[in-house]
Design a protein around this nucleic acid. Structure first.
Length: 132
DNA sequence: TTTCTCACA
DNA sequence: TGTGAGCA
């Protein structure tokens, strides 16, 4: 006895649009069955969608998520899949760390500019000892 | 309602 | 990586 989900059920559950789900299908990330022209999503499809959304949250592209999930019904957690996942995690971590460094440098530069601006203001209108 | 295609950001 | 419009 197979239980199916309709596209609207899934869009409501995951707070995405039907356009998005069909887009994922067009990209080959999910392959729902059809009843006539209607899409029927299995619990397995639903799990895939969960994985897609989690991958997106982690900053992976749809292409990467597709690689990670595996085009063919390979069971999640297979050795090769896990190795690939570890590689993706390492790459993603490097990306984020680099961005973090960039942000820190920018923050430092902002402080320098601010210090210069404050010094200049002080030159233009010094705070007198009376005002203190 | 759902689907599809095309244009668009 | 999606969205909007127009159609059937």
């Amino acid at each position: 006895m197979q239980r199916y989900f309709t596209i609207t059920q899934l869009t409501q559950e995951f707070d995405i649009t039907t356009r998005t789900l069909r887009f994922y299908e067009a990209q080959g990330l999910v392959t729902p069955q059809r009843r006539g022209r209607q899409r029927l999503y299995t619990p397995g499809d639903r799990t895939r969608i969960k994985l897609i959304l989690r991958g997106k949250r982690l900053g992976f592209s749809l292409a990467e998520v597709k690689e990670l999930i595996g085009m063919y019904g390979s069971a999640p957690g297979e050795a090769g899949q896990l190795r690939l996942l570890m590689e993706k995690i390492a790459a993603r971590r490097e990306e984020l760390l680099e961005k973090q460094r960039d942000i820190e440098l920018t923050l430092l530069e902002l402080e320098e500019v601010e210090a210069g601006a404050l010094a200049r203001m002080e030159e233009l209108s010094p705070v007198t000892s009376e005002e203190r």
